[in-house]
Amino acid sequence: MKIGVHKVAMAAPNDVSELAALIVAGTVDPARIVALIGKTEGNGGANDFTRGYATLSYQLLLAPLLGLSPEEVGHRIAFVWSGGTEGVLSPHATVLTRDESIAPPVAGDKRLALGIATTRTILPEEVGTMVQVREVARAVRVALDQAGIAEPADVHYVQVKGPLLTPAAVAEAEARGRPTVTRDPNGSKPYARGATALGVALALGEVAEEALSDAAIARRLDLFSKVASTSAGGELTACEVLLFGNSPSATSDFRIGHAVLRDAIDADAVIEAIGSADPESGSPGSGRLDAAARSRIAAIFAKAEASPTGRIRGRRNTMLSDADIHYERHARAALGAVIASVTGDPALFVSGGTEHQCGPGEAPIAAIVQVR
């Protein structure tokens, strides 16, 4: 397995010109595209339609090239979008290709591998419940096997995008006599994100199933995964799992590493994640990367969270009490600036909401780095 990583800028949610240019140049073979992960300039809420708009735009680009309908492209390629490019964050997409042709791996080395799996449709009454947890766990195990990764310790990032509750979904469930975890679409996000994160934790052995229950989801935040990054959107009805790790059977030009951000200004953890993938790039405490190390960074994926105490490093902030701007938008803007100051590139995947994704107040970060 050989994974390709290509970052493309987007001038608007419907701008697919940079990927089109890579295809024309022969740099990207559309037949090998398996996933896109990106940031759009929407609000990141339940009514963020930029995510679906971007998906449709890429489907329309790829459909004639693949001889498929736009809907068939959506079934073939995983599209994961996070809305909200506050602060310096730049709209972009990371295009991932996979070549399954057999080639001898580098002896004794582990390189970037990617497994992709999708759950069955998650019914509205199942969002944010143990049903969703178990379905995601099953999909993670499928993705793990597909990636050729035998050891959970070699997994560094699991991106899951699943459904949240829309007014229509809530009404449909209630018409069948099935209550949902909440009737509030935006209020369903913590349950949806939390259930999918716990599914990752369950599959990777980070939590025991007997510790889990419906009542624990979005409440028992001492139960978590250190490598899960989960999002929820109204444009999905199933959960899409993208599992990244390093495998001895992969022949990619990249490795992936991860770390835990202890707060939104933890620059050391950014360097730690990069160093986890490429030990020569730097170490925590060094405070910076040289130009060569920066040039090898192919992608950064991170989650952003406000401190549950309302303080960072002893200083009070107003993220949780600001009635005008949701705390997720504050956190994304702050963390995006910190990461960009280290990497020199604001085209970063920074998503809000960390229910069961690292401990309270913490957040995961992963880095894909080109191997020298």
Rank of each mutant, 00 (worst) to 15 (best):
G352C: 03
S341K: 14
D15E: 11
P364Q: 14
A103M: 04
H258Y: 13
E71N: 14
T55E: 13
S283N: 11
I256K: 12
R111K: 15
E272V: 04
R178F: 13
R294S: 03
A175N: 10
L61Y: 06
E210I: 13
G83Y: 05
S321Y: 00
I217K: 14
L96K: 06
A103K: 10
A304N: 05
S286N: 11
V350K: 07
V34W: 05
E126L: 04
P152T: 00
R193V: 01
G42M: 08
I149S: 10
E41V: 09
A250S: 06
G275S: 10
R98Q: 13
S90K: 11
G285D: 08
A25C: 08
P13T: 07
G26L: 04
L204S: 03
E328S: 12
D290E: 06
Q146D: 15
K2T: 05
R193T: 08
D99V: 00
D154T: 00
R288N: 09
L236K: 13
A292F: 07
L165G: 00
A291P: 08
G148L: 01
A259C: 07
A31C: 11
K110R: 15
E305L: 04
V28L: 04
R262S: 06
E135M: 12
G115F: 03
A333H: 07
V200W: 14
E41H: 15
G45D: 09
D154I: 03
A150N: 09
G74P: 15
R76Y: 02
P364W: 01
A293K: 06
E172G: 06
S188W: 05
L96Y: 07
A103L: 13
L68Q: 11
G257C: 08
A228D: 04
R141L: 01
T251M: 10
A292G: 11
E235K: 14
A264D: 10
L212V: 04
I265R: 15
A197I: 00
I116Y: 09
S213N: 11
I368Y: 04
S247H: 13
T182P: 14
T318M: 14
V73M: 05
P284I: 02
S307V: 00
A201L: 02
A63Q: 13
E18W: 05
D109R: 15
Q132A: 07
V369W: 00
R315S: 11
V136D: 00
R178W: 14
D154Y: 12
A201G: 05
I116C: 02
V80Q: 15
T55I: 10
V338Q: 04
D29T: 00
D278T: 01
A291N: 13
A366P: 07
S351R: 08
I312W: 09
R294F: 01
T50V: 10
V131P: 06
T97C: 12
T309L: 03
A367C: 04
A363H: 13
K110G: 05
T230K: 12
R288V: 01
S247V: 00
R316K: 12
E328L: 13
A228W: 01
A216K: 15
I217T: 02
V106M: 15
I312F: 03
A298V: 00
R372E: 10
S295I: 03
D99E: 12
T27F: 05
G4V: 01
L348F: 01
K161F: 11
F49K: 15
P167Q: 03
T166A: 04
T118P: 07
R120Y: 10
C239Q: 05
E328R: 14
A366N: 06
A54F: 05
A117P: 09
R111W: 01
I312H: 08
H258I: 02
V88R: 08
H258Q: 13
